[in-house]
Amino acid sequence: MSSLYTIGRQGSIILIWNGTRIDLEDVVDFQVRQEIKVQRTNPLNKPPIEFNTPAGWRGSFTIDRGNYALDDLFNADELAFWNSNTISSGVLYCYIQETDGSTSKYEYSGLTLSFSNAGKFNAEDIVTQTVQFFASQRRAI
């Protein structure tokens, strides 16, 4: 029997950075939220009017560190910036297996990344790493 609701195992992400696919081993958490800009006017002769305009997407993902892919990505980006003032960019793809058997696909473009947690090393614990991101736009593909 299939579930009536989406569960975390039904989602997956793929990161393309500077044209290269990054091998994200064991993604254990992915979250994203829409950003908006509140537009408001307060006319003297009528009630306030407010509406929202899209302002990008912000999110994060966490991996259980199984390789050095993220470490290498952020090291290369930092060197590129200091050596040649290069700002890297990429695209994030999210795939969701829907309960009806179809797959929803989303592309997050205009991506910027920050390595908010490069890892904590304890003798008996799995090392986790977290990346925060901003995307200018999300579109269904």
Rank of each mutant, 00 (worst) to 15 (best):
K37I: 10
T86G: 03
I87T: 05
T86I: 11
E78T: 05
L73G: 10
I63N: 10
D64L: 13
R58T: 10
C94S: 13
G56W: 07
S88E: 07
P43C: 00
F61C: 01
N52P: 03
T53N: 04
A76K: 01
Y68H: 11
G56L: 03
S88K: 01
Y93W: 15
V91A: 02
V91L: 09
W82G: 05
I63K: 13
F61K: 02
S88W: 09
Y93T: 12
P54T: 01
A69S: 15
Y93G: 03
P54A: 10
L79R: 04
D72C: 03
L70C: 09
A80M: 14
I49A: 13
S88N: 11
I63S: 00
A80Y: 05
N75W: 12
L70E: 08
K37G: 00
F61N: 02
G59W: 12
K46C: 03
Y93A: 07
L70W: 00
A80W: 05
V91W: 04
A80H: 07
D64W: 07
L44Y: 04
C94N: 14
N52D: 14
E50V: 13
N45S: 13
P47Y: 05
I87L: 06
L70M: 04
S84K: 11
A55N: 14
N52H: 14
D77W: 05
D64V: 11
G90M: 10
L44N: 14
T41V: 11
G56V: 09
A76Q: 06
P47F: 00
P47K: 11
Y68T: 15
S88V: 02
F74Q: 13
N67P: 06
S60N: 14
P54S: 07
Q39R: 12
W82E: 05
L44V: 12
F61L: 09
D64H: 04
T86H: 02
S89A: 08
W82I: 04
G90I: 10
P47E: 11
G59K: 08
L70T: 12
